[in-house]
C-alpha cells in the first residue's frame, strides 16, 4: 500500500500556528481515539478504507511525534494532544485522496 498522505514539511510551523490561534473562538480539529473500558472490546474494524486511512494516520502521528515531542513520555497526554492537533490541521480533510 503506497502512502496517500504526505507528511507536512513544516509541522513545527503548524504547531506554532496552532498555539497562536484564538482557541476561544476558532475550531480545533482533532482525531479522537475510541476506547472501550467495559470489557467488551470494539469488534475489529473491517472497512478497508478506514483501515487504510488509519494506518496512514498512525504513521504520520509517529512521524510528527518524533519531530515535535522527541523526549515525551508515552503517557504525556498534553504532548499527545498537541501532536494530534498538528496531525489534524495537516490532514483532516484530504479530499483528493478519498475514493
Amino acid at each position: 500500500m503506497s502512502p496517500k498522505y504526505r507528511p507536512h514539511p513544516d509541522p513545527a510551523g503548524i504547531l506554532a500556528g496552532n498555539r497562536q490561534r484564538a482557541l476561544e473562538r476558532e475550531g480545533i480539529p482533532m482525531y479522537l481515539a475510541l476506547e472501550d473500558l467495559t470489557g467488551s472490546p470494539v469488534p475489529p474494524v473491517g472497512d478497508a478504507a478506514v483501515l487504510a486511512e488509519g494506518a496512514e494516520l498512525d504513521g504520520l502521528l509517529g512521524h510528527y511525534a518524533e519531530r515535535l515531542a522527541p523526549g515525551a513520555a508515552d503517557d504525556d497526554l498534553a504532548e499527545l494532544a498537541s501532536v494530534i492537533t498538528v496531525l489534524a490541521r495537516a490532514h483532516f480533510d484530504e479530499k483528493e485522496d478519498r475514493a
Binding site: G27, I28, P29, M30, Y31, L32, A33, L34, E35, V42, P44, V45, D47, V50, L51, G54, A55, L57, D58, L61, G62, A65, A72, A73, D74, D75, D76, L77, L80, V83, I84, A88, F92
Partner: peptide
C-alpha cells in the same frame, strides 16, 4: 493512555474526527 495506545487506535480504525 498515551501515544502508543492512540497510534494503535488509529491503525485499527478506532477513531473519529471532531472539531
Amino acid at each position: 493512555n498515551g501515544f502508543a495506545q492512540h497510534r494503535a487506535a488509529l491503525r485499527e480504525g478506532r477513531y473519529v474526527r471532531v472539531v
